[in-house]
Amino acid sequence: MSCWQTVQDYALRSIGIGERLLPRDDFTLCQQFTLIGSGMIWNVYFGLLALLAGFFLATALALGKASPNRALRKPAEWFIFVFRGSPLFIQFFFAYFLFLSLKGVSSIFDPFTSAWLGALAVLFLNTAAYSGEIFFGALLSIPRGDLEAADAYGFSGWKKFRKITWPTMLRLAWPAYTNEAIFLFHATTLVYFSGFPAWRQKGDALYYASYFADKTFNPFIPYPILAMYFILVTLTIVGVFGLVNRHLNRHLPAERRMRMRVRPTLLR
């Protein structure tokens, strides 16, 4: 079977399109590359959606944590503490348990026991907590002068937040937020590994990598392939976030621009 044929058969296998049976013997490198790459669809799906949705909740959490109002501050603080203080591994376990029991309460919760929604929800809450903490830190370090200038121009309330506070917060938080994005994508490998069951052998990249490791009894090929795919994803994230960073800093004189330093300030 030619490699092109393999790609046609298995490139979309992880979402249930193409050949139904996974390769059973005579494993080729091409098969491993194709199927593990196919699994990456799920990693990107979880990472991207959780990141996009988490961004908004993170902003709310940061504002909540910085709020002088106790009723807003305490829940935000606890939310961030619980999600940042416990391993994602254990969060997945509890989420699955919780969704199973909620299923009995109402059929609205039925899809939550599948990875595509349930795991996404966990990753969403998790990344919101981590990003919320980053945004909170940035919120506190906004130069007072900027806020005073906004007042002087007569900005207040929503307008001040949208035009001054929020963009400045983003600019300051961006390098750390880039890290969070990288680690969120890495964390997506835990979904099928420990959290949620795989249906009809549709899984993420790690699921297929371990399938091959199990069938060929040789871990030294599939896992490095998986690593390669993730390095590509990481490079893409760094590139895209770098562009956004340039946009956020475009008004600053060259020497004051925040240098894009990807630091491991946060992961799980």
Binding site: S194, A198, R200
Partner: peptide, 12 residues
Amino acid sequence: VAEHGWTLVEFA
């Protein structure tokens, strides 16, 4: 189960 094309759900 996978070979028979039935609905398989796998746990660790």
